[in-house]
Every structure is written in structure tokens, then in C-alpha cells.
Design a protein around this nucleic acid. Structure first.
Lengths: 344, 344
DNA sequence: CTGAAAGCGCTTACAG
DNA sequence: CTGAAAGCGCTTACAG
């Protein structure tokens, strides 16, 4: 391989001069700089990443810890990953993707061996086993997902409580009196997926405050089970006029469920989901929704992480907890409910 | 950070002895080995990855080049990525995920800087701009996807031609006389997605050989467009008794299309898809299909890649071209077609 | 404006 | 069975 020594020899200068000429970290005569640049180009020089990492203690790599659980809807995960990866690259970083089941073990491996300059954790649980390790790691960390204890890390997530309230208030303004909420599977909650009950609790409270009757259930993450659950719910609560979905699989299943029952939104049923616009387009979901903004959350996490990495004073700044204000995407699936048949 | 020097000092041996004791690369007295192991454990020692990479010229990292095009169905991609990442980890490697648009540029960056020991290319095109670079890179490369020129790389893909023949022959044995084939979007073909026309050509030829009337079209990769296309096809060819799908988005859309038309498989229509079982479960697709085996293909690519990396003689072995024999997954959506209405 | 040298933290021939 | 030393390819104070 061609090293900086080869460049230096070809340009007739010392290795340090070659290095400085390439990095621009000290003033070099225009002529020498040109000779070095020419040599580097002709010989096709690229610095050895390992050597540079050893000398600078910077790898220019970020760790991305993703977790794939059986009871989650995998397609939704990809968008977070791309948000992280694309932003990292934009800022000059590469991304080390870690998908192993034992996230804590993986985190220790990549941080203690100094493979990465910082770490983004996806799919963070209420009491996440990776967090204590991350706090004691020498690299900074950013989370997408709100844990119970945010100390020592920067945290980014959708404000699921505001999202829940927004769903209920929107339905309330339209004069809905009875709603159904389908959350993620209960297993997700048990594993510590706090966003499930954060939204659910907010919906429950806000419904109570608004005098709305609410039927809240956990739905499956797979077809056809979640479709059956939707059918069962609509059977069980014929007077419900609105459906709230905090469950991607349920949202993906809903169009065929509605079709099977001959229902149209918003005429027969008002629907609000919670998923990304990208997700909506891929599955052609015609429902008004609250944007989950996976790409934006990934981007925010990376930008903050890189800030901590590159600016020394940022290392000691207080940690950030940023809950994204939910954005309403109106796709026309909500409206004033028809008067119930018994009244007409 | 704690270095091997710290371990050596704590154990009262030289750095080389500490290194050998840890690696086991030469015989060390049981007592010294124990002292070194204890010191490493107590001090929480992990070798610095950059330093090790510099000394050994091995990073224990594989590059994974994924490409996400607008006109492809992203959820299908994730499974290839996980197949690669999980197998890499099993073999002791981490995975550098590269998602940038300019794959050739990215490939040059990670190979010439020696960030990776080998590279897996996903979503390989007929005339892939990344291939010339990969061939001249110092690291070996493995592809998932068949390019026009396989020289210098190991190639793994589903045998799409055999898959096409299998689809037709299966329908032929059931006495179908008129079939519809929905492929991926034409843009994918134009971009060099060879698997699209490899399957399509095979279907066309085999249909001709079997005396079957065939209607072959390119379908969209998004809802609801692809659903409309399916409706239009079924309208246009009422005598067609079988539907072949080489298009994930079409497969995901089909259940609601069938439902809307009051059709049941296999009574009214026989269907064969081409997608993974994981995909089928996520979207609850009840169709007989040819398994696309993304996890297996990712795994095979990584195993071969690692073989080339670790065994010196393997570097010079002839390159592998492995086309996976398509596996038929019977979900009961094919049968003998009913006699056409006009005959009854 | 430039060069000689030290150092990053490992591994591994070379010597004993 | 063990140690002293060289070397991997960079960067960056230190000197001039």
C-alpha cells in the first residue's frame, strides 16, 4: 500500500511536511503543497484509517446499536437506521452497525476497544441494560427513545404523551364520544418499551378529562392476528366512532379490515395513526397520522453526538432531553361522526 | 485507557509476554498466563482496535454496501442486511454499514483507507459501477446479486431463471393455460436490476414452451399504484387463471385486491409469489411462493468472504458463482383452475 | 516555512 | 519458556 512516506519521497519533503501539506494544519509554501498534492493524487494515496485512529484517538466512526425483537414490526426500524447513517456520513462519519441480541455486550466491545467515537442507541427501553455501560464508556452516547433514567446521555424521542393528547383532542373537537386505542403488543411494554404506555396513559387521561369513553387494548405486531383483533374490536364496540393506532402493523392491516366491513373513513369511522410518512407511502395508508419522524430523530441524535465529540467544551455541557412535538399529518380520515343509527 | 503495558506491569512480565499470554500464540507457563489473565480482568483490559489493526493489517470489520433506490420496496432490503450482519458477528467480524448514494465513492473510501477486511455488495446491478473498484481493491469482495461480469468476486444470488421456470411448470402441471406475471418496476430493469428480466425471460420462454398464454408487465413498487395495476390486469385478462409475482409490493397489495374482487385462492385464482418467508409472515401473505432467502444469501456471501480473508490459499482460488436453487413454499394458493364460465 | 523524532498501542520475528 | 526491540502508518509537539 502507498503510505505517507511514499508521498513524502515523491514530493521530496519529509513525512511531517507531507502530512501538514495534506491536512493544512500549518502553513506550507504553495509550491511544496502542490508537489505533495500531485504526488498524493498520482500515487492514489489514502491515509490508513487504523494508523490515523491510533495517532489521533479518533476513528471517525459512530456505533449504531439496533435491536430487532420478534414482537416488533421490523420495517419501521430501517428508517431510524437510515436517518442515523445518512446524517453520520454527512458529518464525515461512518457507521458501525451492531445488531446482535446482547446489546450490552456489543456496546462494551465497540466502546472499550475504541472502534467508535460515539454511540447511538435505538429502541431504548425504560430500564435499558445498555445504559449503565454507555454511561461509563469513554465515548458520548445519544439515544433515540426515552429511558427511565436519562443521566449521562442525550435523549431524543417523539413526545408520545403529547401525541396521545393530540389524538384525543382532535377527536374531541370533532365531537367523538367513544374511541378505540390499539397499542403495540403487551410484550413490548413488558420489555420496557415505554413509548407504548406513555402514549396510552396520555390517551386514557385525556379521554377521561374530555368525558370520552375509551377502549384501550394491546394489538399484535403481525398479520393476520392484528387484523383479527381489529375486527373483534369493531364488533365489540359498534358505537365507537374513532380509532387510534399506536401500532404500525395494525395500521398496515386496517385498509383491508375496513374494506372487509364495508367501512369508509371518515364517513363510518375516523382514524388517526402514529407512524412515519415514509411508512404511510410504502403501505399506502390513507389515514391521518402523527408523524413519528424516524429520520429526523436519527438525525438529531447524530448531530448532538457529533457536537459532543468534536467540541471539547460540549463534553461537559448538561445533557439534552428533547421530545419532539408531534406533527399532525392530515390525510382526511377524520371527521364529525354521523349520528348513531338509533338516533336517526 | 488501560493498555497492554499496564497489564504487563501488573503481572510483572514484558509486554510481549502479556500479548502472547492473552493471544495464546506461543506457550506460556500456566502461572504467568494466570497472572496476566487476572491482571487483564481486574483492570478491564480490551485491546485497542486501531492499534491491533495497524499491527496485524486486519480490522475484523466487513463493509456492507446497501443501496436504497426510490423505486424499490425498502422493507425487503433489511433482511439481507441482517443476514450479513448476524453472520459477520458469528464469525468474529463487525459490520460497517454504508448507505450513501454514491456507492462507488463509498467503496473507495472504506477499502483504500483499510477500514475493512472485505466487502459485501447488496443490490448488485448488471453493470455495477462499484465492481471495477472492488476488483482493484486490496480486499476481497462478495456480491449478493448477479452482475454481467462476475470476474474477481464471489457471487451469490437466487437462481431467478430456475425460479421463473418453476413458477410456470407448477402452473402448467395444474393445467393452467393463461397466466399473468407482475415484475418489479421497469425503472429497476433500466438501472440494471438483472434479476427482474432474468425471471421474466425465463417465464416468457417456459410459457411459450408449454403453450401457455402469458401477460407480462412491470408493476410499481408502491401502494396504491401497484394495487390499481393488479386490478387493471385482472380486468383486462378475465380468462387468466394464475398470477405470478416477482414484486414484493404487489404481493403485499394482493390480499386486499383479491378481497375487493371477491376472489379466493386457489378457487378463483392461483398465485405464486417470490419473496422471503419472513416477509410473508410480516405481511401475512397467504400465497405459495418461491423463497428469496435473503438471510441465507447474506450468510453465504459472508462465509465465503471470510474464507478468503482468513485462509491465504483461498485468496487465489477461483471465484465462486453460486445460484441458489429456488425453494417452493406451498401455502396452498395454487390449484387446478375451474372450468371457465363460458364452458360450464 | 520545514525536518527529525517521539509516540499512539498493539504484534511478532529475533535472541536467548 | 521469556524479553528487548522493531515495526505497522499516521500525527504533532519540539527545534530550527
Amino acid at each position: 500500500m502507498v503510505t505517507i512516506g511514499d508521498i513524502a519521497r515523491a514530493a521530496g519533503v519529509s513525512r511531517s511536511t507531507a502530512s501538514y501539506a495534506l491536512s493544512g494544519k500549518r502553513s506550507i509554501s504553495a509550491e511544496v503543497r502542490q508537489r505533495v498534492a500531485d504526488a498524493a493524487r498520482e500515487l492514489g494515496y489514502t491515509p490508513n484509517a487504523g494508523a490515523r485512529a491510533l495517532a489521533t484517538a479518533e476513528t471517525m466512526v459512530l456505533g449504531l446499536l439496533a435491536q430487532f425483537h420478534e414482537d416488533e414490526f421490523a420495517p419501521a426500524m430501517l428508517q431510524y437506521m437510515l436517518g442515523v447513517s445518512d446524517t453520520a456520513r454527512e458529518l464525515g462519519y461512518d457507521t458501525l452497525l451492531v445488531t446482535e441480541t446482547d446489546g450490552a455486550r456489543a456496546l462494551r466491545r465497540i466502546t472499550s476497544s475504541r472502534m467508535v467515537d460515539g454511540v447511538v442507541l435505538l429502541n431504548v427501553a425504560q430500564d435499558d441494560a445498555r445504559l449503565p455501560l454507555l454511561r461509563s464508556a469513554p465515548q458520548p452516547g445519544a439515544l433515540v427513545g426515552l429511558p427511565g433514567d436519562c443521566s449521562g446521555v442525550d435523549v431524543f424521542d417523539l413526545d408520545f404523551e403529547a401525541a396521545g393528547r393530540l389524538m384525543v383532542d382532535h377527536m374531541h373537537q370533532l365531537r367523538h364520544r367513544e374511541l378505540i386505542l390499539v397499542s403495540q403488543p403487551e410484550h413490548v411494554v413488558e420489555r420496557g418499551g415505554a413509548y407504548v404506555w406513555r402514549l396510552q396513559n396520555a390517551v386514557v387521561q385525556q379521554a377521561r378529562a374530555r368525558g370520552i369513553e375509551l377502549h384501550a387494548v394491546f394489538g399484535e405486531s403481525r398479520q393476520p392476528e392484528v387484523g383479527r383483533t381489529l375486527h373483534a374490536l369493531l364488533d365489540a364496540h359498534p358505537a365507537a366512532t374513532g380509532l387510534l393506532l399506536n401500532n404500525e402493523a395494525a395500521a398496515a392491516a386496517l385498509p383491508s379490515v375496513l374494506h372487509a366491513r364495508g367501512l369508509q373513513t371518515p364517513r363510518d369511522l375516523s382514524v388517526i395513526g402514529r407512524y412515519s410518512d415514509e411508512f404511510a407511502r410504502t403501505f399506502s395508508l390513507p389515514f391521518t397520522s402523527i408523524e413519528s419522524a424516524p429520520d429526523l430523530l436519527g438525525e438529531m441524535a447524530v448531530r448532538q453526538l457529533v457536537r459532543r465529540i468534536v467540541t471539547p467544551q460540549a463534553r461537559d455541557e448538561p445533557h439534552v432531553l428533547r421530545l419532539l412535538t408531534p406533527e399532525f399529518v392530515d390525510r382526511g380520515s377524520t371527521g364529525v361522526p354521523c349520528a348513531p343509527p338509533s338516533t336517526s
